[in-house]
């Protein structure tokens, strides 16, 4: 009985805090994407024409965790298969955040664009039953400076 109460409390806490945190995070991502939209990002490896002086490596990473509510929901959902929207939004947040951090670093170096961008995803902590609790995304590329 106590176990069920604990799980229910954790789920409720996860739902309330997790949802608020995710909404805040998406708002912040949109705001910063707007600020950095002048800085273009490409994933092709050829340099656009121009007299580029420097091309340092830039990168950004982030580790993001699922909240308890989403973890419970996706556990239940994975019994039936289909889309796990909880993980979809987790990975989307992580990728966009990592890209933004990379762009922020390029911006402070005075770069015009970032080419050959690669994204790498790794599951960091595995909980009970090999369930993925948090993911790391690392974005890196070559910043081009005139």
């Amino acid at each position: 009985m106590i176990d069920i109460a604990i799980i229910a409390t954790l789920t409720l806490l996860g739902y309330l805090f997790g949802r608020a945190a995710e909404r805040r995070h998406f708002a912040s991502i949109l705001r910063r994407e707007e600020q950095l939209k002048e800085l273009l990002v490409f994933n092709e490896r050829h340099l656009p024409p121009g007299d580029w002086q420097q091309g340092p490596l830039v990168g950004g990473n982030v580790v993001i965790s699922l909240d308890y509510f989403k973890r419970v929901v996706s556990t239940l959902k994975s019994l039936f298969g289909g889309r796990l929207t909880a993980y979809e939004s987790l990975l989307e947040r992580a990728r966009r955040e990592a890209l933004l951090r990379m762009k922020a670093q390029a911006h402070t170096l005075g770069a015009q664009m970032v080419v050959n961008v690669r994204l790498e995803t790794a599951s960091i902590s595995k909980g009970k039953g090999d369930q993925i609790g948090s993911v790391e995304v690392y974005a890196y590329g070559t910043a081009l400076i005139r």
Binding site: L13, G14, H25, V62, S65, R71, S134
Partner: peptide
Amino acid sequence: NIFGGELKAYT
């Protein structure tokens, strides 16, 4: 892991 969000220490 309960509340979700970025794990800054791991980052």
